[in-house]
Design a protein around this nucleic acid. Sequence first.
DNA 1: TATTTATACTTAGTTTTGCTAATCATTAGA
DNA 2: TCTAATGATTAGCAAAACTAAGTATAAATA
Lengths: 115, 115
Amino acid sequence: MSPELLKGTLTPLILKLLLDRGRMYGYEITQQVKLISRERILLKEGTLYPALYKLLADGLITAEEETAGGRARRYYSLTQAGYTRASEQINLVNDFLDIMREMFTPQPRLGHADI
Amino acid sequence: MSPELLKGTLTPLILKLLLDRGRMYGYEITQQVKLISRERILLKEGTLYPALYKLLADGLITAEEETAGGRARRYYSLTQAGYTRASEQINLVNDFLDIMREMFTPQPRLGHADI
DNA sequence: TATTTATACTTAGTTTTGCTAATCATTAGA
DNA sequence: TCTAATGATTAGCAAAACTAAGTATAAATA
């Protein structure tokens, strides 16, 4: 597994959400993450938008503007390349999570005899 | 959950290893991580040692030098504060892993009816 | 009516993290 | 003798996510 995964779970998460839901706008993503994580992951706009712009620049997502209730929304969806990348990243993250789970499950303390 | 967790699983991992095993030296930690992760997480010395020095500076671990086979080893173990911190961090990481698992498990694609 | 809250996006600047890569030193093995 | 493995150190870099501020509109509320 590439060590970059120790950092960025954010980009895979964005790709995963777009994969599941097809089409989302920025603010919706922040709210969705907040909802799914039961308030425990609060994605700041200052974090999300630059990540989206990077995905755009990399050709992994596309944007289309729409107006809803007087406010402009920018909807993002996966490109073909983004779809492929999403699948790869999701597998990598799941592998990473499996390893982490193994590492973080309670272990009997060595040299400590209970009895 | 604090957003810092999106990054650093490394420090919690070090604390967890020390909690389980009581006492480890730097090189041993890199090899142990390599072993447990089945080669998938390759912790570089340039990554590990600065992290250890930070833990030392924060008073979460202590070091004692020993010589084994002509080579000096520096064994690290948790302080009382480190023990407390380890327990907290392990809980946070496990919460984080649970959320991530939820987010990364396959979801039915909305608007896609499979009969 | 005025103010606050929610919605929606943008961006400058900083910090943290982990990385690369090089160095030093010893021991074991080919 | 040369290389690989063990063991630690450190300088400098890049990426990631953060803080914090600003722009703008709509809805709710006092």
